[in-house]
Design a protein around this nucleic acid. Structure first.
Lengths: 204, 204
DNA sequence: ATAAAAATCTGCACCGTGTAGACTTTCTGG
DNA sequence: CCAGAAAGTCTACACGGTGCAGATTTTTAT
């Protein structure tokens, strides 16, 4: 009886809805890459996932929420990978390593990253998700700047404020470059790295 | 007869349609500040301008076009003002002056600027307009960097590429800061100015 | 096994955008 | 003053996003 119950619970963990939800996000990801956000209709997504429009609204409150969930799923993978990457102690190395990872990230997931940014401007949910992600980056940059000798205060020329500006610079620069070519992406990376180094007082 | 014609032409210069167009943009600007982009319907704009929905579609092809035109109108004013401002020769002064003007710009027209950026991501027309505006800034920054001694080549660490990254940094930083408070805007300005100076090799 | 409860799904209606065409009013040139 | 162009209105409709009442299926408790 207890064993039976456990078996039932195990089966119950994976509800039909979970499958559907994954199917919806998978379809959404494919359509996003294929047609773009605005050309992709809720009907398209529903059809691809094998349900009707109405049913989709049982899982997600809106089209934007679907995409926001897709972004969240993708970003989660990225965090996992980032966490496992060791942080170098030497600022110059840390910066180089961070930029290398950022290029990798944008090369592989440029579309989703750009969509995340697009949505973050208009969808509060996506906005919070993205600003949370940005905060992680800002913290990391702040740490590097402080190790390089910048003061840790709250003034406009202290590490946290500088890190914020640098983070936005990287976000925006990569946003544009990733639309062009992998080549541009590498160039953009070099430029950002240079400005970062200079701002950290590590004039090469 | 020619005089008559001239008189008519003079009157004709200001067509009814021009009035309407201005009325539409004025209403749009007010509604945008009042309810935001998505909550503002084409019917609202038309009603505020004293015409019907159909008539509005005679002037503009879409809701997005209306807002794009509003952005264009605002940006044009800015260019005019910028052009009349004399360019300082000394890089340090030029940078300070540029940042001062940028703060002013975002303080007064933060909403339209942010809307422009929001739209530029999804509306091709607005995108071109904005990237054109950005190019003007990038050129200006490039000029300052070169006067400060940076090489003018096309490499990632040469003036044009650096100017581009700095421009995006400023855009994004001001976008966020202008949503917070005039106080934050001034702080953000100080941070950006510092990074700009440092990148130009003008370590204060 | 079975009834209640929860999860899932359908179909329809609503609202706003955008298009098309017919029709009226207002210019404007001659 | 007239004819035609320009400006504006109205109606109808297709389409996409969204909310909802209720049917249907699955799970849970007994």
């Amino acid at each position: 009886m207890p064993g039976h119950h456990t078996e039932r619970s195990r089966r119950s963990i994976e509800r039909k809805g979970d499958l559907r939800e994954r199917a919806i996000l998978d379809t959404c990801e494919a359509l996003l890459a294929d047609k773009g956000y605005s050309a992709m209709t809720v009907g398209d997504i529903a059809q691809g996932a094998g349900i009707t429009r109405g049913a989709l609204y049982f899982y997600f409150g809106s089209k934007q929420e679907v995409v926001a969930a897709l972004v969240a799923r993708t970003v989660e993978h990225l965090w996992e990978r980032s966490r496992t990457t060791a942080q170098a102690d030497e600022p110059r190395q840390a910066i180089a390593e961070a930029m290398r990872r950022t290029v990798e990230l944008w090369s592989e997931h440029g579309l989703v990253m750009r969509t995340a940014i697009d949505l973050s401007l208009t969808v509060p949910e996506a906005g919070e998700l993205w600003s949370h992600t940005a905060d992680l980056f800002i913290e990391a940059i702040t740490a590097v700047l402080e190790r390089a000798g910048l003061p840790a205060g709250t003034g406009p020329e202290h590490a946290p404020a500088m890190a914020r500006a640098l983070c936005w610079m990287i976000e925006r620069t990569f946003y544009h470059a990733s639309q062009e070519s992998p080549e541009k992406l590498r160039e953009a990376s070099a430029t950002c790295e240079h400005i970062w180094l200079t701002s950290a007082g590590l004039t090469s």
